[in-house]
Design a protein around this nucleic acid. Structure first.
Lengths: 254, 254
DNA sequence: CGTTAAATTGAGATCTTTCAACTACGGTGG
DNA sequence: CCACCGTAGTTGAAAGATCTCAATTTAACG
């Protein structure tokens, strides 16, 4: 894939090469839709383009800076920390999603944002968004859409990833990761992150992934990349039962 | 409290008495903030005021009608139904919240909305909101706020009500119900609804409520209204352990 | 005062966590 | 190039939590 600069501190590639938002794959889908190319070019100068390694912090909860982030590449986790010190991931952002929209209201960030994979983000000043809001007729509809999108994602975490048995949750997470990938190949995230998303322990996540590997739901694992048997995973996602236990032959229904 | 008309079908009290939004307690907080009283009065004619009994349906998932609902009184549940037929509540709306904002985009409703308690709602035509959007300068900021509010609530369900032990979840739900009530008194919802919010079974919800009653976290229950020992509940919400088990005296730390 | 739905309770089955030990991997320094 | 180290991942076994299924009990309502 795209070569990613592996730094803990995000690298601002703005000056490096011309990676303006004109070429931004998410542009037409997102906040900057409806802007003429020229005017866009002008305004987009205020935007920083940042490259992050996997597991790199983007912002901590409580920070109050006037920036909204747009995900261009990679996966981002937004999490709360629980009173007992554990972490609970409340959303996973994909390309096209936005993080830190609360900055629009001058609120401090309500989550801690950290990359799950190497990622590329655009950091957009709130002032710029306000300007767009004034100049682009339909702009605030875009913002509403972004909020709605966030809302659906949060609800999806609840219904898909925090409901049902641990097996089912893991299967649904893997399907999400596969969908995100676009193919049968599934890029696994750390067991710890899985646990934090699914509301289960790291050990349980590990056990279940191992089990899926043994029973063929995941195959050909090289590093953190596996081939997913999507139909099998879908079945597990529904059922979360009929798994690899050597099914005892029942005399009753045989 | 306010006398509530107990009907399955919502009662439109628009013609009954003059319950215009001028007297609406949520008005200044919500969608209609910033509107002059006069202009408001004009526009608000399109709004229907509906009274619902407890457990009354407001709209089903998938329905596509151009209305947004504003909660004036009572609690509303927004739920998805799971593949196995079970219900998962994804949000609980309080007075001041809005339901069905997706109608703004012409989308079908993404949840099934049902009252948890007797409730009073305003049903606002989308066309009216669009008009407000054009006429009231700061209106779309109100809309953004509503979305953000929804987002926080969804995340709160995740971190407060779908995380930790079943005891902790129930305790946090009771605190929410108490907070909503404004006093020490807690109006319980059905065990089934508790289960659907907390991601536990009805039986578990019942057992835990009964246990809380026995150990004094809830007292003086009359019907579904109890007095909550808020500090005890808060402790249970944190801990979800040190409960009514006759605590064995430990020689070690005695 | 029946009738029905909701709430409660019990007991065993099942799932998940806990705690601890162990393995695999990637990088680092010699 | 290899030994060493630390982190992440894996696994086992027992404890604990929750669910399931079934039986009661209670409450609500006509």
């Amino acid at each position: 894939m795209t070569p990613i600069v592996k730094t803990r501190q995000p690298k601002n590639i703005h000056d490096d090469e011309e990676v303006g938002c004109g070429s931004c794959p998410v542009r037409r889908l997102d906040l900057f839709a409806g802007l003429s190319d020229h005017r866009a070019g002008e305004m987009l100068r205020g935007i920083d383009h940042l490259d992050y390694a996997a597991r790199a912090p983007i912002y901590p909860i409580g920070e109050r800076i006037p920036f909204v982030y747009v995900v261009r590449e990679g996966l981002i986790k937004l999490s709360h920390s629980l009173p007992n010190g554990a972490e609970r991931i409340v959303r996973i952002l994909e390309p096209g999603d936005t993080a830190g929209l609360e900055a629009l209201f001058g609120d401090p960030y309500h989550h801690t944002a950290v990359t799950l994979t190497p990622a590329h983000l655009c950091r957009v000043p709130v002032a710029l968004l306000e300007q767009l809001d004034r100049e682009v007729p339909d702009f605030h509809r875009q913002l509403l859409r972004q909020f709605q999108r966030s809302l659906y994602q949060a609800e999806a975490v609840l219904t898909n990833l925090s409901t049902g048995t641990a097996h089912g949750r893991v299967a649904r997470l893997l399907l999400f990761l596969a969908r995100n990938h676009g193919t049968h190949s599934v890029t696994l995230i750390s067991r710890e992150d899985m646990g934090a998303i699914l509301g289960i322990t790291t050990e349980s996540a590990s056990r279940i992934v191992a089990q899926f590997r043994r029973n063929g739901a995941l195959t050909h694992c090289k590093g953190s990349v596996c081939t997913g048997n999507l139909s099998r995973l879908a079945e597990l996602a529904r059922d979360a039962d009929a798994n690899d236990k050597p099914r005892r032959v029942s005399y009753a229904d045989g």
